[in-house]
């Protein structure tokens, strides 16, 4: 029965690939995105992957007939058609993080809440591989897969007025990285000098839906070195291709 297709106003339609968050449903979203990207359907203006949906924005003036478009999109997005090899290769990005201190003012709170040593929090936060389900909320912000449940910590009672971009945080069962400066209530456990969003760059966004992310603990000196390399624009985060 999937994908289901339904209108989002008069300039977008939503393809739905499941009603629960599963890796399989999100895989279907990624695959449909990939297929439609190569479909050369002339009316597609842009697409936004969600957890279990793919929203396709179109130009109504280029649409042949609405029902025909729905049919074409559904067919083009359908699973089962062979994919080119590079889709099964996922990018695995490793983000260096300085944990604790003034870069991670809530690390101790997260440790206390979960009755762990701070070292143990860092160990558990860095040993997981997080899947990027989708992007949204702010430019360059990734929605990451689940956090080790022993690290889950409620948001701060009083949100901070300004959390600097690069801050790595925990909110309930989620972990994430602030991609731009913004107000927020996440528990901040560390900071990555790597920029997730840089409007001045040809490719302004580092992470894309479908990527895998891990965090790597670095010391103050390494952090400073990477920070300066990022400032100069010469730092390249470690990226591996991973066979799924």
């Amino acid at each position: 029965m999937y994908p289901l297709i339904s209108p989002l106003g008069d300039r977008a339609v939503r393809l739905t690939f499941g009603n629960r968050l599963t890796e399989k449903a999100n895989d279907s979203v990624q695959a449909a995105y990939f297929r439609l990207n190569h479909s050369e359907l002339p009316y597609i203006s842009e697409m936004v992957p969600g957890y279990v949906t793919l929203t396709v924005y179109y130009d109504p003036l280029k649409v042949p007939a609405y029902n025909k478009m729905l049919h074409q999109l559904k067919n083009a997005a359908k699973a089962g058609q062979p994919l080119e090899n590079d889709f099964s290769q996922k990018r695995h990005l490793i983000l260096p993080v300085y944990y604790g201190g003034n870069k991670g003012p809530d690390l101790e709170e997260v440790a206390r809440w979960n009755s762990l040593e701070t070292e143990e929090v860092i160990k558990r936060h860095t040993r997981a591989t997080y899947r990027v389900y989708m992007m949204g909320f702010a430019p360059g912000f990734p929605y990451l897969g689940e956090l080790d449940e022993t690290l889950a910590t409620p948001r701060r009672k009083t949100p901070r007025k300004k959390v600097p971009s690069g801050s790595v945080g925990i909110a309930g069962p989620q972990t994430g990285v602030y991609s731009v400066d913004s107000p927020g209530g996440w528990q901040i456990i560390g900071h990555t000098p790597v920029r997730l969003f840089d409007a001045g760059k040809e490719e302004p966004v580092l992470i894309k839906a479908g990527d895998l992310i891990s965090f790597k603990s670095v010391n103050e000196q390494e952090y400073e070195d990477i920070f300066h390399e990022c400032e100069k624009g010469i730092y390249r985060p470690s990226i591996e291709s991973k066979e799924e």
Binding site: E46, V48, Y57, F137, A138, P139, F197, P204, K208
Partner: peptide, 10 residues
């Protein structure tokens, strides 16, 4: 600024 909504850019 169209074309970048998939990266969170409105």
């Amino acid at each position: 600024r169209y074309g970048m909504q998939q990266y969170g850019v409105v």
